[in-house]
Write a protein that binds this DNA or RNA. Structure first.
Length: 490
RNA sequence: GCCCUCAUCGUCUAGAGGCCUAGGACGCCGCCCUUUCAAGGCGGAGAUCAGGGGUUCGAAUCCCCUUGAGGGCGCCA
């Protein structure tokens, strides 16, 4: 059998972490088995769906490298032979109506004239009487006269599926194994809303069948929808796909991941400077693992190793700290050129005039601190002093410049550096050490003030590499500036 | 309230009856390296496997109950 899987987001916002994880698992499952990965847009919520969200989802998917073989594409284009892949277009094509009418004709669906208010009352009453909150099926046996009466009142009916009231619905979930539901607790869900739009449970099942989806891999929150959809398949005489329900992703407090836990969309993490590779790797490990608990995967390795068998049944808490650690790992693996290209936009964004150095020089400077970066967004603040006027941090001044002998040291170093013909790392280091030794200073005693004088801070790249990159002119200028500052200290 | 699901270090997890005195990773602590901050190396603390009953010669692993957590019960998806 051909493996065909789909990711079916509804365009009501940006692609969030949970959705991205579902998309990734579907993608990996397809790649692993040489199957087809399909992107379907479920925009049957006519009030909340937006084209903007749809495009944002496309963009996040592309960025994550989750390229789909079939489905909706940007600019209203489509790819594949099972289209359209946007449900509103399928609705326009009459696809849902056709199958709904067949069920209606065969007596497996019925018109429901209940108003939202009536349904709300029904639920309230059930709540009060401690009964299950499901629809009581009152419109199932409406007489023609009653129906006509409602029609005359101007009520537009919704179409409900007639759920079997006895027996059980069973299926084998690829992750959870055997699942069983009493049909009596299932309910007559709405297939077609009064507006004519299909509901999720209806459109989803119809499309999965028509698109020949072999495996439905989705979040745990859909478990209770599965028996509903299974009964629909059954009524239609269709063979259902296999199901696999992924555990949820929770926030640090164990509650469902939401805004108050911090960034929740792929886009936000991208902005922070998480690499796409990092996010893929991290997300893959939320609810899935290999038997050796491998953490970092090489390019293409996830596609090769992914397996539904390694999926966890229990929910996973999203850990931003581990994400950051992993991002550092991936940043360290970047080539100089890759890092430079990635960092560039963050530099420009934070107002650094990157053009004041040659691209080679700028790349060189950025890579000086490569092993320290955890987020691309923190790069500018770590190396900005190479590109603009030095600013002495309060902290550094208090900690270093107030020590004895700083003035003597800076003056001495200034002299030494001025006389240097070859202003390179080795020469600078030799000269600096030499100065310390011949004047009876400990190396640290000299290094620290020099560091603060040229960079304005106590932490940074290897001192002599840093000074070489700064250049003779800048270095001397900054030592002078530090000397001026010293005079103002009391 | 009803239904469903889940339960191993703080967190992500390995574990499919004896290999478990429970392994790895993040984080934390210490040491080494070192001019700083990182990175790296080495080491450490951290889980009576939610609790209680069974089954078995033997259970983290199988069964039952309890508890806790999550999900669903929408003309949302």
């Amino acid at each position: 059998m051909n493996i065909r899987v789909r990711f079916a987001p509804s365009p009501t916002g940006h692609l969030h972490i949970g959705g991205a994880r579902t998309a990734l698992f579907n993608y990996l499952f397809a790649k692993k088995s040489g199957g087809t990965f399909i992107l379907r847009i479920e925009d049957t919520d006519e009030l909340r769906s937006t084209e903007e969200s749809m495009n944002s989802i496309f963009e996040s998917m592309k960025w994550l490298g989750l390229d789909w073989d079939e489905g909706a594409m940007p600019d209203l284009a489509e790819k594949g032979n099972s289209g359209p892949y946007v449900q509103s277009k399928r609705q326009d094509a009459g696809i849902y109506k056709k199958h709904a009418e067949r069920l209606l004709k065969e007596g497996m669906a019925y018109r429901c004239y209940c108003t939202p208010e009536e349904l709300e009352d029904m639920r309230r009453k059930a709540q009060l009487e401690k009964r299950p909150l499901r629809y009581d099926g009152r419109c199932r046996k409406l007489s023609n006269a009653q129906a006509e009466d409602f029609e005359r009142q101007g009520r537009r009916p919704a179409l409900r599926f007639s759920m079997p009231q006895e027996g059980k619905t069973q299926f084998v979930d690829l992750i959870h194994k055997e699942m069983e539901f009493e049909n009596a607790i299932l309910y007559d869900f709405i297939m077609i809303k009064a507006s004519g739009y299909p509901t999720y449970n209806f459109a989803c099942a119809i499309d999965d069948h028509l698109m020949e989806i072999s495996n439905v891999i989705r979040g745990d929150d859909h478990i209770s929808n599965t028996p509903l959809q299974l009964n629909l398949y059954n009524a239609l005489g269709w063979a259902p796909p296999d199901f696999a329900h992924l555990s949820m992703i929770l926030g640090s407090d164990g509650a469902r991941l939401s805004k108050r836990h911090g960034a929740t969309s792929v886009q936000e993490y991208r902005k922070q400077g998480i690499l796409a590779e990092t996010l893929r790797n991290y997300l893959a490990l939320l609810g899935w693992s290999t038997s050796d608990s491998k953490q970092i995967f090489e390019k293409g390795e996830l596609e090769e190793k992914f397996d539904l068998k390694g999926c966890q049944k229990n929910p996973a808490i999203f850990d931003p700290v581990k994400l950051k650690w992993m991002n550092g790992e991936y940043i360290r693996k970047l080539s100089k050129q890759e890092l430079f290209l990635l960092a560039k936009s963050y530099m420009v964004e934070s107002g650094i005039d990157i053009e004041c150095q040659s691209p080679e020089k700028a790349a060189d400077i950025i890579c000086l601190e490569q092993e320290k970066y955890k987020l691309l967004s923190e790069i500018p603040s770590m190396i900005d002093f190479f590109f603009k006027e030095v600013i002495y941090s309060r902290d550094a001044v208090d900690k270093v410049f107030r020590a004895h002998g700083v003035e003597v040291i800076l003056n001495g170093i200034k002299d030494k550096y001025s006389g240097l013909g070859n202003f390179n790392e080795a020469e600078i280091e030799a000269e600096t050490r030499n100065f310390a030794k011949s004047n009876g200073f400990k190396t640290g005693q000299v290094f620290h003030p020099v560091r603060v004088a040229v960079s304005g801070r106590t932490e940074g790249p290897t001192l002599f590499k840093m000074i070489e990159r700064l250049g003779k002119e800048q270095t001397l200028k900054r030592i002078d500036k530090a000397l001026e500052l010293l005079k103002t200290l009391v």
